[in-house]
C-alpha cells in the first residue's frame, strides 16, 4: 500500500497525515479523523449522504480521492454547528420537522448551506434543484424544503 503525506484544512484546522494513496476523502474523514457525521449511503455519488464542502462547493466525498483534496479546504457537518451552538439551518431543520432517520441529514444541511451562501433567497423550486442530488427515503423532501426556506428567512434577519 503506497503511502503519501496529505495536508488539508478540515473545519478550519490544518491536518497533516501519512495516508494511503488509494483512499477516498470519505474514508479519510471517517476512518482517519473519525468525523462520522459524513455518511456513506451508496458509494457511487447517487445519494449525497457523504456531501462535504470542498473549497466551499458541495461534493460527494465518496467520489473524491483523499489526496486530490491536498492543500484544499474541507467543511464537514461537524464544522457547521455544534449541539451548543446550532447553525440556523440546523435549527430550521429541527423546527420544520425535516429530520427523521437522520442519515441523509448532514448531507442535506451541507447542500442547503452551500445553496444559501450563493443564493440567500431561493425559491422552493431552486431549493429542490439544489438538494436533488441528496436522497431522502423518510421525509418526502417537503419538510426539508420548508426548513431551507425557514433558514433563509432566519439568516435574512
Amino acid at each position: 500500500m503506497e503511502m503519501k503525506k496529505l495536508s488539508l484544512t478540515v473545519n478550519g484546522k490544518l491536518i497533516e497525515r501519512e495516508v494511503p494513496t488509494n483512499i477516498r476523502l470519505l474514508d479519510f474523514l471517517r476512518d482517519y479523523l473519525h468525523l462520522t457525521g459524513t455518511k456513506e449511503g451508496c458509494g457511487e455519488g447517487e445519494c449525497g449522504a457523504c456531501t462535504v464542502l470542498l473549497d466551499g462547493k458541495p461534493v460527494n466525498s465518496c467520489l473524491v480521492m483523499a489526496h486530490s483534496a491536498h492543500g484544499r479546504e474541507v467543511i464537514t457537518i461537524e464544522g457547521i454547528g455544534t449541539p451548543d451552538k446550532l447553525h440556523p439551518i440546523q435549527e430550521a431543520f429541527l423546527e420544520a420537522g425535516a429530520v427523521q432517520c437522520g442519515y441523509c441529514t448532514p448531507g442535506m444541511v451541507l447542500a442547503a448551506y452551500a445553496l444559501l451562501k450563493e443564493n440567500p433567497n431561493p425559491t422552493r423550486e431552486e431549493i429542490k434543484v439544489a438538494i436533488s442530488g441528496n436522497l431522502c427515503r423518510c421525509t418526502g423532501y417537503n419538510k426539508i424544503v420548508d426548513a431551507v426556506e425557514l433558514a433563509a428567512r432566519k439568516e435574512g434577519k
Binding site: 457511487e44 429542490k128 434543484v129 438538494i131 436533488s132 436522497l135 418526502g140 423532501y141 417537503n142
Partner: peptide, 17 residues
C-alpha cells in the same frame, strides 16, 4: 442493486403534498 439503476424519488420527483 444500486441507486443508479433502482430509482427512488428525488426532491424533484416528489410533489407538494
Amino acid at each position: 442493486p444500486s441507486f443508479t439503476e433502482y430509482l427512488i424519488p428525488t426532491a424533484l420527483d416528489v410533489p407538494e403534498v
